Lab assay of single mutants.
Amino acid sequence: AEKTGIVNVSSSLNAREGASTSSKVIGSLSGNTKVTIVGEEGAFYKIEYKGSHGYVAKEYIKDIKDE
Rank of each mutant, 00 (worst) to 15 (best):
A1C: 15
A1G: 13
A1Y: 14
A1Q: 13
A1M: 14
A1L: 14
E2P: 15
E2V: 15
E2Y: 15
E2M: 15
K3H: 08
K3R: 14
K3I: 10
K3L: 10
K3M: 10
K3P: 02
T4W: 11
T4K: 08
T4Q: 09
T4G: 04
T4C: 13
T4N: 06
G5I: 05
G5F: 05
G5V: 04
G5L: 04
G5K: 04
I6W: 11
I6R: 08
I6D: 02
I6P: 02
V7R: 02
V7S: 03
V7H: 01
N8Y: 08
N8E: 06
N8V: 12
N8I: 13
V9E: 05
V9Y: 06
V9T: 11
S10N: 09
S10K: 13
S10G: 11
S10W: 05
S10I: 12
S10R: 12
S11H: 14
S11P: 11
S11A: 10
S11N: 12
S12D: 09
S12P: 08
L13N: 01
L13Y: 01
L13D: 03
L13Q: 03
L13F: 02
L13I: 15
L13T: 10
N14W: 12
N14G: 07
N14H: 14
N14R: 10
A15P: 04
A15R: 03
A15E: 02
A15T: 09
R16W: 15
R16F: 15
R16V: 06
R16E: 02
E17W: 07
E17D: 09
E17V: 08
E17N: 06
G18I: 06
G18S: 14
G18H: 14
G18Y: 13
G18E: 12
G18F: 14
A19E: 02
A19K: 05
A19S: 06
A19Q: 03
S20F: 07
S20W: 06
S20M: 06
T21H: 14
T21A: 13
T21W: 14
T21G: 09
T21M: 15
T21N: 14
S22Q: 11
S22L: 11
S22M: 10
S22E: 12
S22C: 13
S22A: 11
S22W: 05
S22H: 12
S22R: 09
S23H: 07
S23Q: 02
S23Y: 05
S23M: 05
S23K: 03
K24H: 06
K24A: 09
K24P: 11
K24W: 03
V25Y: 04
V25K: 05
V25W: 05
I26E: 02
I26D: 01
I26W: 01
I26G: 01
G27K: 03
G27I: 11
G27F: 15
G27W: 13
G27C: 12
G27Y: 13
G27L: 11
S28K: 12
S28P: 07
S28C: 14
S28L: 12
S28H: 11
L29Y: 02
L29V: 08
L29P: 01
L29Q: 01
L29H: 01
L29T: 02
S30W: 09
S30K: 14
S30E: 13
S30T: 11
S30M: 14
S30C: 14
G31H: 14
G31R: 14
G31N: 15
G31E: 09
N32R: 08
N32K: 08
N32F: 11
N32L: 09
N32H: 10
N32E: 07
N32A: 08
T33I: 07
T33K: 04
T33A: 08
T33F: 06
T33R: 05
T33H: 05
T33D: 08
T33L: 07
K34T: 09
K34S: 06
K34H: 08
K34W: 07
V35L: 03
V35Q: 00
T36Q: 08
T36N: 10
T36M: 09
T36F: 12
T36E: 03
T36Y: 13
T36L: 10
T36W: 12
I37C: 05
V38L: 13
V38S: 02
V38A: 03
V38D: 02
G39T: 01
G39C: 07
G39N: 02
G39W: 03
G39M: 03
E40K: 03
E40A: 05
E40P: 01
E40S: 06
E41Y: 09
E41S: 08
E41K: 07
E41F: 09
E41D: 10
E41I: 08
G42W: 01
G42K: 04
G42E: 06
G42A: 04
G42N: 06
G42D: 07
A43F: 08
A43Y: 08
A43K: 10
A43T: 08
A43I: 10
F44P: 00
F44L: 02
F44T: 01
F44G: 00
F44M: 03
F44C: 07
F44S: 01
F44Y: 11
F44K: 01
Y45Q: 05
Y45N: 04
Y45G: 05
Y45L: 06
Y45I: 06
K46L: 12
K46I: 15
K46V: 10
K46N: 02
K46A: 04
K46Y: 10
I47R: 00
I47C: 06
E48R: 10
E48C: 14
E48I: 14
E48F: 10
Y49F: 13
Y49R: 00
Y49A: 00
K50P: 02
K50G: 12
K50L: 12
K50Q: 13
G51F: 05
G51K: 04
G51D: 08
S52M: 15
S52C: 13
S52Y: 10
S52N: 09
S52L: 14
H53W: 14
H53D: 04
H53V: 14
G54Q: 03
G54F: 12
G54R: 03
G54A: 15
G54K: 02
G54W: 12
Y55L: 02
Y55W: 12
Y55H: 00
Y55R: 00
Y55C: 04
V56F: 00
A57Y: 11
A57W: 09
A57F: 10
K58W: 02
K58P: 02
K58N: 01
E59F: 06
E59K: 11
E59I: 12
E59H: 08
E59Q: 10
E59G: 05
Y60W: 08
Y60P: 02
Y60M: 08
Y60I: 02
Y60L: 07
Y60N: 06
Y60R: 04
I61S: 01
I61Y: 01
I61D: 00
I61W: 02
I61R: 01
K62C: 11
K62M: 11
K62S: 13
K62W: 08
D63K: 09
D63W: 10
D63S: 09
D63A: 10
D63R: 09
D63G: 08
D63F: 14
I64D: 06
I64F: 08
I64L: 09
I64C: 09
I64G: 05
K65D: 09
K65E: 10
D66M: 14
D66S: 12
D66E: 12
D66F: 14
D66G: 10
D66N: 11
D66C: 14
E67F: 11
E67T: 12
E67I: 14
E67L: 14
